[in-house]
Design a protein around this nucleic acid. Structure first.
Lengths: 220, 220
DNA sequence: CAGCATATTCAACAAGCGTTGAATTATCAA
DNA sequence: TTGATAATTCAACGCTTGTTGAATATGCTG
């Protein structure tokens, strides 16, 4: 137990780094700030995780596996429950989004910070392509394959642009900039992921249908 | 001429700062990097623009007025061309997006960098709310008002969430992370704004209609 | 208790940071 | 040409950065 699991301070460093990196980006945070906020010496992050970039990677990787498993299981679940023709577009997108509510459900602020960190990386021209691909491409391709099956007449190009739009809307949601709070005068809240997904699912599903052949419903 | 317009090097500093800030964010760029790439002394940015943060603000403000005017004129244009009932959702979104193709049309790389900088700011939890509001809220509210008129049965809450989704998809497009290039195996290109908008306009219009009362078409 | 590996702190380093005051060059009107 | 003003460079400052080697504390094993 004591050997295998990292020390308590080690996890506290990851938690604090997660929060600060999500808020200010990689370059906007110093190792000293992390150490101070975690209540440990400046040298401890280096001891546990090596260089600053290694620490960043450790934070980014930490929850990725669990998140991917959760989303994939949601996809498999809706595929099993669906009939021969497979799940609908709405069901697939739902499986893509709902697992992200884990932050709200568990009340774990760490998950909220992590999702904001994903938004930071995904939107960054410098980090974006490489880091996201490495950890999330496999899963994303599963979802796109499911969507392709639900929209058999779709052209590949249209399918990818639709996913891009969905991904962008999701990214801005995860970033939690508070912008919609101000714009809407408080009627919408950035932190309310459930409301965001309740709107994003029908919103993007309609988009997919329009651009990727809406014959699905008419045929039945 | 010489007094009023800033010197040639002064503009070069802004151009380089724009490019680097868009790529690496505020904290990911040093004043020295900017000066080196611009081919000027380290002290010159401070002389012309003051503190580093003032330089960042100068870059962010520089093209904002022109961009806002261009978008507002596109909105007024489609409003004037439309009949009594006003423009359609598609026409409004088109007016919101097409002016952003100015970068491709003029071949000015500076505009591409600037749009990526907007994406960086808009997606940043720290900078996002304040900086975006200051420069773009007035315009955004014009567009939302036009959309409200085109969708008279819409609940305010739904309208704002729909705009949020549109804004997110646009933001990821402007960021130009190259992620869709890799995902699609080259079938889609991040740099092809025209293709992005050709897809985003019907995509988001369908979303607006589904969530904000689709009776518009059925009634006519 | 002794011994040892791990965890943590301490102290310091070389490098890079933003910024500034003084010195130098360019620009242009008189 | 001279003088004034703006533009630019030069040199340096005090401070912060990430990282490291040695010293100390902690916790477990025997």
């Amino acid at each position: 137990m004591s050997r295998k699991s990292p020390s308590e301070k080690s996890e506290r460093i990851l938690d604090v780094a997660e929060e600060l990196f999500a808020m200010h980006g990689y370059d906007g945070v110093t190792v000293r700030q992390i150490a101070n906020k975690a209540g440990v010496d400046v040298a401890l992050p280096s001891y546990h995780f090596g260089k600053k970039l290694d620490l960043f990677n450790a934070v980014f990787k930490r929850r990725a596996v669990e998140l991917n498993e959760s989303r994939l299981s949601a996809l498999r679940n809706c595929q099993n429950n669906a009939g021969e023709e497979g799940p609908t577009v709405e069901q697939i997108i739902e499986a893509f989004l709902r697992p992200l509510e884990i932050a709200q459900e568990t009340g774990d602020q760490g998950w909220t910070n992590y999702l904001a960190l994903i938004a930071y990386v995904n939107n960054s021209p410098y980090w974006g392509r490489k880091m996201m691909s490495k950890l999330f491409d496999k899963l994303v391709r599963e979802f796109i394959a499911a969507l392709r099956k639900a929209l058999p007449e779709a052209r590949d190009e249209d399918l990818y642009w639709c996913y891009h739009n969905l991904s962008g809307a999701l990214t801005l949601t995860l970033a939690q900039t508070g912008r919609i709070d101000k714009l809407s005068g408080g009627k919408c809240r950035s932190s309310d992921f459930e409301a965001a997904y309740d709107h994003l699912i029908p919103f993007s599903a309609a988009g997919f249908r329009v651009l990727c052949g809406a014959t699905e419903v008419a045929e039945n």
